[in-house]
Write a protein that binds this DNA or RNA. Structure first.
Lengths: 145, 145
DNA sequence: CCTTGAGCTCAAGTGGGCTTCAAGTTGCAG
DNA sequence: CTGCAACTTGAAGCCCACTTGAGCTCAAGG
């Protein structure tokens, strides 16, 4: 049982195309050792990184943001507990935000069955009050961006 | 209080650029009436659609998928309760999937503080058993795509 | 009436995230 | 030691989701 994977093996195990894996490496998300003949050899731990990357992507996080998060992870040397606390805190906030957004969207859709309209106003839209009265009455999007 | 919004007003309220709103219309995600002079006038309800679109996008759902979901919504006529049940069911599954993914990722990150490595294997990776033994031992990504 | 800002269309450009292609090299099985 | 699949790089191409620009029209105030 070798503990280094070829790019083909990593691809097979992760379900991610070799071209994408090379791309991730160029973008600084993945690391690989090289053989004498210049072929990539991945440590097993890289599989976890790939998992992290794909899952994060699936919930709408950009490669750049993922890269930033992964930057504070071990790259041969062991990270300090402080590094970890830092990363986890940061990432947790982003994830919590998304989870909240999704849960509200889902619950709102559920609450909408039978009402005949997409009643998102209750939780997704909010009228922050009189400071927007100049633009006239009505709800405004309470979603960033 | 007029009940039709110009594209500029819809943009201001939703935080979405007018160019994006026109794009959404071309893609079939949004509808607008026209004035005699060919300018767009949006019903207030379109704000809800925009909210739905942006939130869905933020959690990694493509415009095409969003369009499909919105297709079963009222476009002047009232949808049947069956339409709603259908849409909500479909969408709920997608959202549940994403929520589960996010929650596991978040909790796993939390569980990782102090251990010195990104221990995602416990929940994100799984070894589905012997049917993959031919490719050698080890975990495989249990994430679609 | 005239100006000015908001809106219109169509076409081209942009950036992210890859995939594909061409042309050459490596590494393992026989 | 040979043959062939798997690997290498670099450049170009592709799809999505917009944005930008040119050149025009519309609508409301002075």
């Amino acid at each position: 049982m070798q503990d280094l994977l070829t790019i083909g093996q990593l691809s097979a195990r992760s379900g991610v195309a070799t071209s994408a894996l090379r791309y991730y490496e160029r973008m600084g998300l993945l690391r690989a050792d090289r053989t004498g003949g210049n072929q990539r050899r991945y440590a097993r731990g890289e599989l976890r990184r790939v998992a992290f990357i794909r899952i994060s992507q699936q919930v709408g996080i950009s490669l750049e943001e993922i890269r930033e998060a992964l930057e504070s992870l071990p790259a041969a040397r062991t990270p300090t507990p402080e590094d970890w606390t830092q990363l986890s805190k940061l990432w947790r906030n982003r994830l919590d935000e998304k989870i909240t957004l999704l849960t509200r969207l889902r619950d709102d859709l559920d609450g909408c069955i039978g009402c005949g309209c997409l009643s998102l106003r209750r939780c997704i839209l909010s009228n922050p009050g009189d400071q927007v009265a100049a633009e006239g009455p009505g709800a405004r999007l309470a979603v960033p961006r």
